[in-house]
């Protein structure tokens, strides 16, 4: 595939996902008299916080009562929260992010207790509906952008610390799937592990170490991550080193990373911006629709918007508001 045809494929993909988005503007249903339990693994970075806050705000705007529980990145705590929610017998539960292996048996217990379960970014077989970005589409779009930018050859540093989190798994698998067709691109082994907390700081130091280990121009061409908080640190490390020809790629649209992508002098390469507020809202509206007797599809995909160095000035002003 030539760089030009890759670009055409990207444009087509973004256009097709934008069309899907039009179907989201569903009429909201009232939740008066209903109690909705909302549990999130964390709410301390932009994506998690906006999912959580917008879902709470939308349930309240629809007249419902919220029991909102933030597990602050601790799996043990989230399990306790889910147990607590089951005991409260709410009319529905919305679960946001988390490790699928840990969550699955407990999400099944929500359903066994007769409480309809809705999730954001957790593809669980127990859920009535999962709201997610089209991680298949955006995962391959981001990978193609990377391939395009580095001229389809070079070495790539990859952060892969959260493969057990479903959206990360899908984006990573899509990235690897795309790379299969570009044998001149190599993923540097061992892969890096992104961590929570101190994500950006740790990534800064990891990437600084890797720049020392691979000191020559062309040794590293790109850095990839399934979200963008590690890339804030990674991009800062590359910029601070003065190395050129290395670009960073991720997902979410954290303001600091968007600035780096928009900055022509920075290593920030591209980011797929998720419609975070919309996703929280859509989940709450799906709950309302379901509790009002409507049929809800098993998956609601929300399109992502790709921001690259070239289109940043044009696209960033049009991004959906995050407040």
């Amino acid at each position: 595939m030539t760089p030009t045809s890759i670009r055409s494929a990207l444009v087509a993909l973004v256009a097709s996902t934008a069309l899907t988005g039009a179907a989201l503007a569903d009429d909201a249903k009232p939740l008066a008299g209903k109690t909705i339990g909302i549990t999130t693994i964390r709410a301390d970075n932009q994506a998690d916080r906006l999912f959580y806050q917008s879902a709470i705000a939308e349930v309240e705007a629809l007249g419902g009562t919220v029991i909102g529980l933030d597990a602050q990145s601790n799996d043990q705590t989230q399990i306790a929260h889910i147990q607590t929610l089951i005991a409260q017998k709410p009319d529905a539960v919305i679960e946001i992010l988390g490790n699928l292996e840990v969550l699955e048996p407990w999400l099944a217990k929500v359903t066994e207790a007769g409480i309809p379960l809705f999730t954001i970014d957790t593809t669980s077989k127990a859920a009535v509906n999962v709201v997610a970005s089209d991680n298949y589409g955006l995962g391959s779009a981001l990978a193609l952008q990377l391939v395009n930018d580095i001229g389809a050859k070079g070495n790539v540093l990859v952060f892969n610390g959260f493969y057990s989190v479903p959206p990360c798994r899908i984006r990573y698998d899509q990235f690897r799937y795309v790379l299969k067709d570009f044998p001149e691109i190599t993923v540097i082994e061992p892969e890096l592990r992104d961590v929570i907390p101190n994500t950006a700081q740790r990534a800064y130091s990891d990437v600084t170490d890797m720049l020392t280990k691979y000191p020559n121009e062309g040794d590293i061409s790109a850095v990839w991550s399934c979200w963008d908080v590690p890339l804030i640190g990674a991009t800062q490390a590359i910029d601070a080193s003065g190395r050129k020809g290395i670009y960073t790629y991720g997902v979410d649209g954290s303001p600091d990373f968007l600035d780096q992508v928009a900055d022509p002098e920075s290593a920030g390469g591209a980011v797929v911006v998720q419609q975070l507020v919309e996703m929280g809202k859509v989940s709450a509206r799906n709950v309302a629709a379901y509790l009002n007797g409507e049929t809800v599809p098993p998956v609601t995909f929300v399109p992502g918007i790709i921001v690259t160095k070239k289109n940043a000035d044009e696209v960033i002003p049009t991004l959906p508001a995050t407040d």
């Binding site: 043990q76 399990i79 840990v102």
Partner: peptide, 9 residues
């Protein structure tokens, strides 16, 4: 309880 070992213990 977690069906896994997890960080943050």
């Amino acid at each position: 309880r977690l069906s896994a070992s997890s960080t943050g213990t």
